[in-house]
């Protein structure tokens, strides 16, 4: 059993080489999400009550499809970063934390991939 303090065991090992990366990306994805959410709300309002053919055509039109893809990626990335902080704050124990962090990434990837596939399918002709 080591008598060293937690701080003592990590001192001198250098930084995690992560720096302000997380903070910066959190802000970057949040600005993107903010702008794209306004677009997404406008799109949703324009589609209220429309039949499938109209919805599919509009979602698949080039500018809207690309903006939707951007929205999906901004959201998924922002979700991954945000949930990572929550997991690091609240999940105790090495194994549980690693599993939660990995699960977080898998979930966000799944969200992005399913949405992106749907939008691309509509864009490339349903």
């Amino acid at each position: 059993m080591s008598m060293r303090t937690p701080l003592g065991t990590v001192r001198g090992l250098g930084s995690a080489k992560d720096g302000t990366g997380h903070f910066w990306l959190q802000r970057l994805t949040s600005i993107a999400s903010l702008v794209l959410t306004i677009f997404a709300f406008a799109l949703a309002i324009s589609l209220v009550g429309e039949p499938h053919a109209v919805v599919a055509a509009r979602l698949g039109s080039p500018f809207i499809a690309v903006a939707l893809l951007a929205t999906i990626f901004a959201y998924a990335y922002h979700m991954q970063l945000g949930m990572q902080v929550i997991i690091e704050d609240y999940v105790q124990g090495e194994l549980a934390r690693v599993l939660a962090l990995a699960g977080n990434i898998f979930f966000c990837f799944a969200v992005a991939l399913f949405s992106a596939f749907a939008v691309l399918k509509l864009g490339f002709g349903g």
């Binding site: 499938h52 599919a56 979700m79 399918k121």
Partner: peptide, 26 residues
Amino acid sequence: GTLLYFGIVIFVWWLVAAASSPAYFD
């Protein structure tokens, strides 16, 4: 943030439905 994290599944479901078939979308 956490509720939106899980709630986005609703949005994904809707997109996938639109890409699946008119019947499923309806």
